[in-house]
Design a protein around this nucleic acid. Sequence first.
DNA 1: CAAGCTACTCGTACGCTGTACGAACGCGCA
DNA 2: TGCGCGTTCGTACAGCGTACGAGTAGCTTG
Lengths: 224, 224
Amino acid sequence: MGRTESATDPRTPLSQARVLQTAVAFADRHGLESLSMRKLADELGAGAMSLYHYVPNKERLVGGMVDIVFGEIEPPSTDDDWKTAMRKRAMSTRAALGRHPWAVGEMEGRTDHGPANLRLHDAVLGCLRTAGFSIEMTVHAYSVQDAYIYGFALQERDMSSETADDFAAEAQRQMHAYADVLADYPHLVEVVGGYVAKAGYDYATEFLFGLDLILDGLERLRDG
Amino acid sequence: MGRTESATDPRTPLSQARVLQTAVAFADRHGLESLSMRKLADELGAGAMSLYHYVPNKERLVGGMVDIVFGEIEPPSTDDDWKTAMRKRAMSTRAALGRHPWAVGEMEGRTDHGPANLRLHDAVLGCLRTAGFSIEMTVHAYSVQDAYIYGFALQERDMSSETADDFAAEAQRQMHAYADVLADYPHLVEVVGGYVAKAGYDYATEFLFGLDLILDGLERLRDG
DNA sequence: CAAGCTACTCGTACGCTGTACGAACGCGCA
DNA sequence: TGCGCGTTCGTACAGCGTACGAGTAGCTTG
């Protein structure tokens, strides 16, 4: 029993791609805050320090994970007119962030832009420029859309109820929890207590409402 | 030298308010990720465990800090028409989040709503309802606005350059850093390299562009 | 005045984190 | 045969949130 009694066998060898994919899967299941180098190494059947041969530190590990998420976002197709193209990529972004909620606060502002990130940004800018937006207006248009998309994803992640019914139930629970102070907040009672707690809140509908409002506004600005 | 040789004296006694305010000030200076119970206690001239008599755990500490930020947001005034009222509260929100960037990912979805939080939400709902929005439309309107406001704040926090010139300089630095792959991303070169790296990016202007686009859209929906 | 109770303070300890350091190992080449 | 290099990872350290329980100071009650 002297040799090769390692409990877990890696079967496939370690590699950067495998480290990143495993990390994404782990974060999907348990959240980013409970992803640790040791747990990730366990998952891979390796020692914690082995990971540092594929990734220089945890920060860059997360950077690599984020670029995997960017890679799942469908870039705007040149076959569609700009509005449907932008609509689809917004929905695709929301879908990717729904699959990987841990990525929501992490997508923007990284200094290590991965290839998928660059590719997507380039495609979106190209879509808007080709549609006839001026450079200035392209910047504006990009800015509003992304602020909205990522902001909505943030809300969706934080409020966390999956379905409209879940949401209604949660709203009711909250109304009960705050019953003693609700007299001071009549509009909260009317809108949340009287409507949301019954009808719920459908994320997909809500997302498209705001998205179309923004896209229609942009179209008017481009044409007018 | 037997007694009272404690190095730091608290001068004012500990209290929940003082703990929360000190925590906010610390996070403003050093960021939320480097706020620890031990450092906060040091700041207050106390032992780490003393804090737990004013706050049950770190999660709730952050909850209390967040409500301080909510308290700095000016609720919509009933003297203004709804559009200016909403415009002002959006700008006030952005300003508060600019002073407390650590709060950006933390404002929504907490289950421990503080009084300032409830007050603000109630006032915004009241403003929209009084302006004649239906309950359904009020929910829509609230949703778009907050998604945009928090999403913009997220971008602003993450991109972190303060002024338009800083931003331009940073854009130039990035273009150099990625010089070898830029051939694959022509629109990035045109828009970022050719425009942003020169003209910069003024957050205030950009914010108001999107905000007015959204408010105009809402007005049309209310009237039409 | 004494006794007890309450509110508060905090020293110590545990299990967790990211990661620096350097020792070990297996393989291809001289 | 031996050397170097790519890879693995055991150990260790500083820092984290916080459970536990001992200590103390001040007020209330007899």
